[in-house]
Each structure stands twice: as C-alpha cells, then as structure tokens.
C-alpha cells in the first residue's frame, strides 16, 4: 500500500506540476499580450480567456477524450488513458486561469512603469520582465490558482486517464475509487495527503508572494 501511495502521490505531483508549468509557459505570455497588445480580435480572445477560467473540467475531459479516442482525430498518437492525456486536459483547465489572472495583474501595474524602465536603460525584454515582477503578486496568485485547480480536479483526469492502477491513478481518482468501494478510511487518508500537499505548496508560494510586501498597518479610527 505504501509503495502504491508513493506512486499515486508521485504521479499526481508530476502530472499537475507539469500541467501547471506548461500552462505558465503558454499562459503568461498570452496574459502579457492581452494586457499590453492592441490587435484585432483582442477583445474576443480576452472574453474567451475569461470564459475559460470557469470551464467545467468534465467538459474539458469529454472534449480531450473525444480528440484522443482511438477513432478520434488524434487517436493515432495513442495518448488516451496515459499521463500525457491527463497533462493535456489539465493544461487546458489551467491555461485560461494563468492568462486571465496575469492579464488582470499586468493591467493593474502603473502604466508609467514600462516607460520608466526604458528611461533608465532597460531593453525590451528587461522592461517586460520588470513589468512581470511588478505584477508578481498576481502572477503567483495565477500559479496558485492553476495548481490548486488541476491537482484537485477529478472529472477530466478520470475521463482521459481512466484511473488505471499503477499507470494513471492520481490522488483524486484514487479517493473516488476508494469511496466507491466503501473504504472510507483509505479515502480519508488519501484526502489528508492531498490536502497536505496542496497546503504545503501554497504555503511556500504565499511566502514567496508576500516577500517584500510591506503593507501599511491598519489604524482603526476611535
């Protein structure tokens, strides 16, 4: 059981971690582009991103499953019921979240920041990096929101992963499996592990996010 638990935890972290990283790699530039760019279709794309933030995982699971199904358009890739399929589904869930939150974060940064950075000699990339750093509270919120949503979702990974023991079983699908079989004690242990992981990762991300933030203390009026 211990080895099996470690396998499940390992797969959960690697699938959700990989999905979050890919979503960040794609979503961050998209968020920056939507925040700063002026191009035809920007409004539509922003609306799509915002809609995507509330996308039901089960719908994502259905669409990805149909695409990767053996007779589906991408069936020849042979990805259905593999961790790769789970990563794809989770990226689709996390991507709009990263893009949407980072877009909002960058739009809240003082619009004079890029000009000030350039005026002090920053290159285009350095200016962009300065902007991202200024929006780091939102950026880390995006990471937390994305990771939190994919590690705790069950519908999509179940549909595209199949919950195969030793291959595609992750913490959420394992909890579902154990509950169905009436093994509530095991299900609770797994739920506890999932919560601990989510909490620990978010704790460190929050520490990172709040580093250097010096809010003025609240003073209550008498």
């Amino acid at each position: 059981m211990k080895t099996e638990l470690l396998e499940i935890v390992g797969l959960t972290l690697s699938v959700s971690g990989m999905a979050t990283l890919i979503a960040l790699a794609l979503g961050l530039p998209l968020g920056v582009l939507l925040a700063l760019g002026r191009f035809p279709g920007r409004g539509l794309l922003a609306a799509m991103v915002n809609t995507g933030m509330g996308l039901p995982p089960v719908v994502v699971g259905l669409v990805v499953a149909m695409l990767l199904w053996r007779s589906g358009p991408l069936g020849q890739w042979g990805l259905i019921y593999t961790p790769a399929a789970m990563v794809i589904a989770q990226v689709i869930i996390a991507l709009p979240m990263v893009a949407g939150v980072s877009m909002a974060g960058i739009q809240q940064v003082d619009p004079m920041i890029p000009l000030q950075a350039r005026a002090l000699g920053a290159s285009g990339w350095q200016t962009l990096w300065t902007l991202v750093k200024e929006a780091r509270l939102s950026m880390l919120a995006a990471v937390m929101a994305a990771f939190g949503s994919v590690i705790s979702e069950v519908g999509a990974v179940l549909m595209v992963g199949g919950n195969l023991k030793g291959q595609t079983r992750v913490l959420t699908t394992a909890i579902l499996q154990e509950t169905r079989m009436g093994r509530f004690e095991t299900a609770l242990t797994l739920a506890y592990v999932l919560l601990m992981f989510t909490f620990t990762i978010n704790f460190f991300l929050t520490r990172l996010q709040q580093k250097g933030v010096r809010a003025a203390p609240l003073r209550w009026r008498r």
Binding site: M112, I113, Q116, A117, A119, L120, A122, T130, E134, G212
Partner: peptide, 22 residues
C-alpha cells in the same frame, strides 16, 4: 527622469541600482 517619480516595488537600494543592473 519623468515628471512624477515612478518607483519599482522594493527598496530604495534596488531602485537606485536598477539602471546599473540592466
């Protein structure tokens, strides 16, 4: 130098050395 000083989040030190770092 812009009309209104625009500072990056952080300390005076990090702001003063920004131009040298880039």
């Amino acid at each position: 130098l812009l009309q209104k000083p625009v500072f990056f989040q952080g300390t005076v030190r990090s702001n003063v050395i920004y131009g040298l770092k880039v």
